[in-house]
């Protein structure tokens, strides 16, 4: 079998990602509106911006999909006229790369809620690194910075980990994942029977 992503995989990934691009764009005003409440309630919502990668991986389960999905979703967001401008591209790339790294550590074999949550955490860490350069987050008062970290990590695990997993499970029931995942060993065995 040929390695790498086929046209089908790429097209399916990018379509999913652009849907997320729209969601990402609509998410920004919600996030900004919640932000002044303070105490970093807004950070609980941040995880939404990591969701495309894990979800695309759960559907297609191939190397490179998470990176492609997150980058494509961020470009989609940019093309919608994102408030974050071109920096979404950099965020998307870092988040996608780190999520991909976690999935690679498990050799793309595991696709459970724990692995995608770890991938979400990695994306989250990546976003914080860029925030450090862009947003002077180290200049926040200590208790506030602590809350910031906790809220963002919890939000990432909940949205990009747990909800993404639930959504992928629901999609599996519809049978569409069979289109892209190709044949499994069980399928090959069933031919012999």
């Amino acid at each position: 079998m040929k390695k790498g992503l086929k046209l089908t995989d790429i097209l399916v990934t990018i379509v999913i990602s652009l849907v997320f691009g729209v969601i990402y764009k609509l998410w920004s005003p919600i996030y900004s509106a919640v932000k002044p409440i303070g105490l970093h309630v807004d950070q609980l919502l941040y995880g939404m911006w990591f969701m495309a990668g894990p979800l695309a991986f759960l559907i297609i389960r191939k190397p490179g999909v998470a990176l492609l999905a997150e980058t494509a979703a961020s470009s989609g967001e940019l093309l919608m006229g994102s408030e974050w401008g071109l920096s979404t591209l950099i965020y998307g790339l870092i988040q996608g790369l780190l999520a991909e790294l976690i999935l690679a550590l498990f050799r793309y074999k595991k696709a459970n809620v724990l692995v995608v949550s770890l991938a979400a955490i990695a994306s989250c860490a990546g976003s914080i690194v860029f925030d450090y350069f862009q947003g002077y987050i180290d200049a926040l008062v200590w208790w506030n910075l602590g809350l910031f970290f906790i809220a963002r990590f919890v939000g990432s695990v909940l949205i990009a980990g747990v909800i993404a997993y639930g959504l992928a499970k629901a999609l599996e029931k519809t049978g569409v994942t069979g289109l892209v995942r190709g044949s499994t060993e069980a399928d090959v065995r069933s031919l012999d029977d």
Partner: peptide, 8 residues
């Protein structure tokens, strides 16, 4: 996903 698959 179905539509993307058909296009591909």
């Amino acid at each position: 996903i179905r539509r993307a698959y058909r296009i591909a």
